[in-house]
Design a protein around this nucleic acid. Structure first.
Lengths: 156, 156
DNA sequence: CATGATGTTCAGTTTATACTGAACAAACCG
DNA sequence: CGGTTTGTTCAGTATAAACTGAACATCATG
């Protein structure tokens, strides 16, 4: 059904998806769209990958959510057609915004809560804890600053 | 058993572990070591976190593997004691080397295989595929270059 | 050596997550 | 409108990964 090249490219994106903590099917779908020479609709993906309608719909939704794919209009056809976004910069930026920022934000929230909890400890113990909390906040700050820089570096 | 602060700090590292695709227990163990004011042995961790001996042993092994913890020698005690490494630079470097580089390397291998498979297609089709394979190689090259830069940026 | 303390391994189990497929909703068309 | 096509949702199931706990290995010490 799939050519050898298609299989290898899809396998590559499946591995990437795994590293990025995304479902396998998301890697498969992006892979088939990436290597396809024309836009594909939901059923095209589903049939070629031999996965369910539900997985395909969910996978396309996730890929749309961070701009890894774009919809293309095909005149005289009601179906939605998709192509893979090929700008690494755009994909990385979308992924950073949609998938990573929320984690950083919730981390900042939790740090505030941790600071409050310092009050519950008496002075001498608090000194030691405060050092660690400071370090933690420093890490978070650095992580937050690196993310935009990575995006600058990765795509011009 | 655990103070409120300990719980919150551990929860923070559990979330981090999740983002990094590491087992929950690894986040818990690093968290308890990070917030502890003295070195802890395997059983200290196991008891405080209420997890099994097996998980604790595996978790410590993983943390050692990329230098997120260090063993400290305690005179007159056969047990191994651990403290959390607090240099973000060292941890990030270890993580990059041990957990990310292998993925990049296997990606490079697969790219070579993909290049070979281009031969199986005839000229006109090959032109289109080659474009995509070139793009993919470009991505991989950029990813490989960004990684060392991130390490430079993150810690001095 | 025998003992006891410590850490590792791994087969079996639990748990979390992704996948399936059928029911449903929305939109188009005759 | 009724029928058809297309896409979404979600309860149930399958799958992969982590966790458990007991057996096993290692080693210091008397």
């Amino acid at each position: 059904m799939l050519t050898a090249i298609e299989q290898e490219v899809i396998a590559l994106f499946v591995r990437m998806a795994d590293v990025l903590n995304l479902p396998r099917s998301v890697g498969e779908i992006y892979g088939i769209l990436f290597i396809a020479t024309e836009p594909l609709c939901l059923d095209d993906c589903r049939i070629r990958l031999n996965i369910s309608k539900g997985s395909t719909s969910q996978g396309l939704k996730i890929l749309r959510s961070f701009g890894a794919i774009r919809t293309v209009y095909v005149p005289g056809d009601r179906k939605d057609y998709y192509v893979a976004e090929t700008s690494l910069r755009k994909i990385a930026a979308g992924f950073a915004t949609e998938q990573i920022q929320p984690h950083l934000a919730s981390g900042v929230d939790r740090m505030a809560r941790i600071r409050d909890l310092l009050e519950l400890h008496d002075a001498d113990e608090r000194v030691q804890l405060e050092e660690k909390v400071d370090l933690l906040e420093n890490w978070q700050s650095r992580a937050g600053k690196v993310l935009p820089l990575v995006l600058k570096l990765i795509g011009g």
